[in-house]
Nucleic acid binder design. Structure first.
Lengths: 231, 231
DNA sequence: CGGCTTAGGTTGTATATACAAGCTAGAGGA
DNA sequence: TCCTCTAGCTTGTATATACAACCTAAGCCG
């Protein structure tokens, strides 16, 4: 398991803020006496695990570390509201073609996209802000629909006929900075859940979305039966 | 991009419930006129994306996609730490019989319970606090074990022989009040994820637990394949 | 019949080679 | 000075080869 030895060694150095970055496949291969393909595999796995960021032509750089785990799924807003017995309302703050910020542009693979920003209310209280970018080639018909009434997810699947075959998502807790806190009628730095989601049709990313949800109005709850936990 | 062509083709066949499984690297390579390593890459990526399950000596099979909608699953701390490549450490702050607070007592159905409070470190940084109440009639042997080294979940399942058949849990964002913020080396009102969980053996509640996780060190992330979302 | 060995499939690991594509610094020319 | 181009680095893709580890089924032998 040579590639594991290389991984371990690189992982050690990552902890020490060594000034030896960026790493390169060839230099690692020489240092450990392995082939480039073996060093490459070590770096690829470290990238996949979130330790390294690799860019063609530049090299492999350490990433800022964070920890992740788990499994989760979140229901559409109207379904959630119905389950709470509250009255939902949606205000569309923007719906237009707009250049994509770099992180989103990289994920969607386009320089500009349909931008939709919506504010969600339960019983006339703002509880969630949604910011969404949609792939322009696949979703251009979307703006003809009433985004205050219809679920974008349902529109994509049923009206535009885009099968949503894969979902990547991340959930975290954040403190609301000020323009957002005011928009959601919260004090600055109030806690909120932030859900970021990228949805694919096969290998094509279709839409990126960020939800910010007031912590005092939103939680995720579930009951399930675990698999393979019998003694 | 030959490996992409192979991926696409395999993905198509996956949709059709073709009886051509299991797939093998060599047969794919012959069919598409590519090298084994190229076919291998296609299969590896499909595995990583959750479409295929590959086993040495057997082959590549389509996965049952039971990615359980609406569910949130959290791994044991040591497993999580290992996956992150970080060094875990556990400090036991309390382990004793204690009266249950009303919300917990109601859920467990007992007036007093085994109380365990632990602080979890990754690379010597406190990242999670766990507070747990255990049903005294079923878990009294637990205090004889080393709670700094062993997973309570594993102890319950494997040592005490309690099948954990049902789980209720809730996840939310909170602001850390001051004694807790200091304990986790955060500023007061820093955001955190709070996970509350009640675990049953059949209809008997066994343990209630609350995890507080630093927002700057914890997030939940996943990729899954949705069910029944085809148009 | 029952158990063992073995042949031949599978994926996993490791190497060498070649070229394409992205990036950057520095040489060179206007 | 400023611009352009290129040499030389990086990662990405593709191939060929070799052997190890794992699995299954067929066949052999007691």
């Amino acid at each position: 398991m040579k590639y594991l030895r290389v991984k371990e060694a690189v992982l050690q150095e990552l902890g020490k803020a060594t000034p030896g970055f960026p790493l390169s496949e060839n230099s690692l291969a020489r240092r450990f006496g392995v082939s480039r393909m073996t060093a490459r595999r070590a770096l690829q796995e470290l990238q996949q695990e979130g330790y390294l960021s690799r860019r063609q032509g530049k090299g492999s750089f350490p990433t800022e570390r964070r920890f992740s785990q788990g499994f989760l799924r979140v229901r559409p807003f109207y379904e959630f509201a119905r389950a709470q017995g509250a009255t939902p309302r949606t205000q569309v703050l923007a719906a237009e073609l707009r250049p994509t910020p770099p992180e989103v542009g990289q994920k969607l693979g386009v320089p500009e996209a349909l931008y939709v920003e919506r504010l969600r209310f339960l019983d006339d209280e703002p509880v969630q802000r949604e910011v969404r970018y949609l792939h322009p080639a696949h979703c251009q018909d979307l703006l003809r629909h009433d985004l205050t009434r219809e679920s974008i997810h349902d529109l994509l699947v049923h009206t535009l006929g885009l099968p949503l075959t894969r979902v990547w998502q991340r959930l975290e807790a954040v403190a609301l900075p000020d323009p957002l806190a005011t928009l959601l009628e919260q004090l600055p730095n109030a806690p909120a859940l932030r859900l970021e989601r990228l949805t694919y049709t096969f290998e094509t990313p279709i839409t990126w979305v960020e939800y910010l949800m007031r912590a005092d109005r939103y939680y995720l709850e579930d009951t399930f039966i675990p698999q393979g936990e019998r003694p």
